[in-house]
Design a protein around this nucleic acid. Sequence first.
DNA 1: CCCTGTGAATAGCTTCACAGCC
DNA 2: GGCTGTGAAGCTATTCACAGGG
Lengths: 272, 272
Amino acid sequence: MATGRNHRPATSRSRGIPEATVARLPLYLRALTALSERSVPTVSSEELASAAGVNSAKLRKDFSYLGSYGTRGVGYDVEYLVYQISRELGLTQDWPVVIVGIGNLGAALANYGGFASRGFRVAALIDADPSLAGKPVAGIPVQHTDELEKIISDNGVSIGVIATPAGAAQQVCDRLVAAGITSILNFAPTVLSVPEGVDVRKVDLSIELQILAFHEQRKAGEDLGGPPGRRPGEGVHPETDTAPPAAPPAAAVTKRPPEPGNDGDLPAVMPA
Amino acid sequence: MATGRNHRPATSRSRGIPEATVARLPLYLRALTALSERSVPTVSSEELASAAGVNSAKLRKDFSYLGSYGTRGVGYDVEYLVYQISRELGLTQDWPVVIVGIGNLGAALANYGGFASRGFRVAALIDADPSLAGKPVAGIPVQHTDELEKIISDNGVSIGVIATPAGAAQQVCDRLVAAGITSILNFAPTVLSVPEGVDVRKVDLSIELQILAFHEQRKAGEDLGGPPGRRPGEGVHPETDTAPPAAPPAAAVTKRPPEPGNDGDLPAVMPA
DNA sequence: CCCTGTGAATAGCTTCACAGCC
DNA sequence: GGCTGTGAAGCTATTCACAGGG
């Protein structure tokens, strides 16, 4: 099993384009596509930025990495920019992808229209459950895991999506990589170990919720005029605040909370 | 309809904890939970970092924002740290959430175990399709959109998940916000406009794939010794390279590609 | 005068490297 | 000796603000 390196220099700007910019290009593309469908011929950085949910300075800076595709005093030609961004992202070609793990999520992904419309083609659905084999999901018959290597090489697939349970993910990942996959989108809540040269991006649904909870908690705290402080939803009924903390390790009592006003220890059972 | 501001100072460190750190806390928590289940009592920053897929310096720095919860020469007490991070994230309480849009994705989310295990409780499933009403998904009966406001206030819900088609998302969002929701996890491929004070996080499945495609394209280019260059999967069969670009706007021919060796214009139909 | 493109300034994040404590 | 906690350095990203072309 691979010993996990994933960490490229973080901004390995693959030719001068910062990662942060790359991550926003799909956003711009989506906004531009919408404009294009409405036959809008040109758009200013201000308009496009607001449609994409970023600010215009950032957008202009981002575009400046791609080249000078705008016209001063006018704005950007929508169609032209759609093409340039698509090309930059590699979407002017067709990417076959396989989805491994056809549970609820895998099925949702197979049905997701956003793939097909962006140059991605679901080449195969793969699952370990033999009883699923042959059954069509989103019009595509599910194939058994045994076929994995063959499917990948026959279809020249280089992008794999893992939607299996966490326990199976690393094993699936290893097989995908061995079969020639070099980019993986991982929905399983695990850290995948992959050899150098293989890209992994992860989407973890519960992580996003946890981040929201963090901010939500803060809001609740502010409402009450205190620091953190915890409290459920709309404060309607007191939720099951979890049990008190594990005892600190013998020595860690030397703890020193960053800010006063919250000694950050016991949950101080929440107010009504 | 709200005029969309979302943009907090980007690192509005809600009490000194940087956003980047907050975003990693769930990762640490997951790794720690796994260790806890294996009854591992303590862990070093090195071990934990590798389990979480980050480097140890970053992890230590992250923890230093929470306080000094480790023991020099020893490491961190697993249980204690689980508790501290949970508390920091607001997971020592129970967060009721509603999921709106019970299609494939909504159903997948409703079934997703990662929620329940992290202090989130699916309080209700909501869909606009009357024929779904009453049908149980993941053991929870789907309710009609008409009930949305009532459900939210009755359950004191402050976190909503939008898994509707893009077209319905803003409207649903507005209703959620009007009903008192202050945190939204958006799976619809749209930019949502929300008033000040409401948090939105988005998960866009196709964006992640597009980012992978970008890097994949680069790899393919490097293989061939050239800059970008495009090419499908394993180069097995030549995929449908999309049609040539839209004509540049009269003036934008003044384009100036950042780097030589790729004048970035025509798709130069890919090599075999 | 409008709007792009971009140096310069600022803010934020990561990594280094080592002091301090166990 | 081992490992945490953290200033300081280095790097990336964002924002500002304005030069410059249409």
